[in-house]
C-alpha cells in the first residue's frame, strides 16, 4: 500500500464541525484513484493531510493516522514529504516561481540541495516525460494555461514522488487540452509507475483511466469502488457527483435490460445498442 489512511479526523481551529471525519482509505501502488464530491466536502483538506501541509502548516484537531509509503505523515518532515508526495495545485500559475521553465522545474531539487549533475538529469527527464522541451527557456507569462499545467507537473515529477496528487487539474483547461492531460496522466502511470490521486469534477474525462472512485460527503467517505460500481449505483447522484451523460444513458438502458452495469460503456457502444433496438 502506498497510501494508508486510518480513521483520520481533522477540524480547523474554530470550525464548528470536522472537515475530515473518520476517513479511511487504502491505495495500492500505481492505481489511479479519482476523488469526487461536492464543493466543501473536505476533499481539499484530505489532500493536504496526505502531503503534510496538514498538520505541518495548518494546525487543528488532528487524530488518526496517514501513512505514505509506510511512514507516518505526521512524523515526517516536509523535506521528506516533498519527495514522497507530489502535489499539483488547482491553479498552475501559483506554483511556478522562477523566470524560466527549466529553472522552475528544478525549484524543488534546488531546495533539497541536489547536486547539479543529478538535478540536470532529473529536470531533463521530467521535461522529456511531459514533452515540453521546446518550452524549457520560456518565461511563465509566455505560456498558455495547458502549458503552465505541464510545467507545474514537471516540477512535481522532477522530485520523483511515489504518490502524485492532482487537485482539479482540468478546471482551467479547454476540453481538448483537458483530454490530452488525462491521456498524459495515463501514460505517466505507465512510464514512472506513480500512483495518482485525482480530485476532479469532470468525471467523463477520467472514467477511461480511473481504476477506482471514492466519493466524499461532509468529510466522510461515502462511496468507494470501481468507476462502474460508483457511477452505475443509485447513490452517487445524491452526493453531488456529476454522472457522465453516457453513463446515465447506459443506466437507463440497463433498467430495460439492454446494457450491463459491470463496466462503463463509451458513447459508441451506447449508440450501437440504441441502433440495434431501433431495428
Amino acid at each position: 500500500m502506498i497510501l494508508e489512511i486510518d480513521g483520520l479526523n481533522f477540524r480547523y481551529p474554530d470550525a464548528p464541525k470536522k472537515a475530515v471525519d473518520s476517513f479511511s482509505l487504502q491505495v495500492p501502488e500505481s492505481e489511479i484513484v479519482v476523488l469526487a464530491g461536492a464543493s466543501g466536502c473536505g476533499k481539499s483538506t484530505l489532500l493536504r493531510a496526505i502531503n503534510g501541509l496538514i498538520p505541518h502548516m495548518y494546525a487543528g484537531d488532528y487524530s488518526g493516522d496517514v501513512r505514505v509509503g509506510g511512514s507516518s505523515v505526521k512524523a515526517s518532515s516536509m523535506r521528506e514529504l516533498a519527495q514522497r508526495v507530489g502535489f499539483l495545485f488547482q491553479n498552475p500559475e501559483n506554483q511556478i516561481f522562477m523566470f524560466t521553465v527549466e529553472r522552475d522545474i528544478a525549484f524543488g531539487l534546488e531546495n533539497l540541495g541536489v547536486p547539479r549533475q543529478e538535478m540536470r538529469r532529473r529536470v531533463d527527464e521530467a521535461i522529456g516525460l511531459l514533452g515540453i522541451g521546446s518550452l524549457a527557456q520560456r518565461a511563465p507569462y509566455e505560456l498558455s494555461d495547458g502549458q503552465k499545467q505541464r510545467v507545474a507537473l514537471a516540477g512535481v515529477l522532477a522530485m520523483r514522488p511515489k504518490l502524485i496528487i492532482l487537485d482539479e487539474p482540468t478546471s482551467l483547461l479547454d476540453p481538448k487540452t483537458a483530454l490530452d492531460f488525462v491521456d498524459l496522466v495515463a501514460n505517466l502511470r505507465k512510464d514512472v509507475g506513480a500512483t495518482f490521486l485525482i480530485v476532479e469534477h469532470r468525471l467523463d474525462l477520467l472514467v477511461k483511466v480511473a481504476d477506482r472512485m471514492v466519493v466524499m460527503s461532509s468529510g466522510r467517505k461515502v462511496l468507494d469502488g470501481s468507476p462502474s460500481e460508483v457511477l452505475m449505483g443509485d447513490e452517487a447522484d445524491g452526493f453531488g457527483v456529476s454522472i457522465p451523460a453516457v453513463s446515465r444513458v447506459q443506466k437507463l438502458l440497463a433498467k430495460d435490460g439492454l446494457a450491463g452495469v459491470d463496466r462503463l460503456y463509451d458513447a459508441e457502444e451506447v449508440a450501437a445498442i440504441r441502433q440495434r433496438e431501433r431495428r
Binding site: L53, M57, R79, F87, N94, Q95, E102, V114
Partner: peptide, 17 residues
Amino acid sequence: EAMESRAYGASERPTSL
C-alpha cells in the same frame, strides 16, 4: 502551500541548476 510542497527552505545549502 506550493513552496512548502516543493521543499522550500529544506536545505541549509540549496543548489542551483
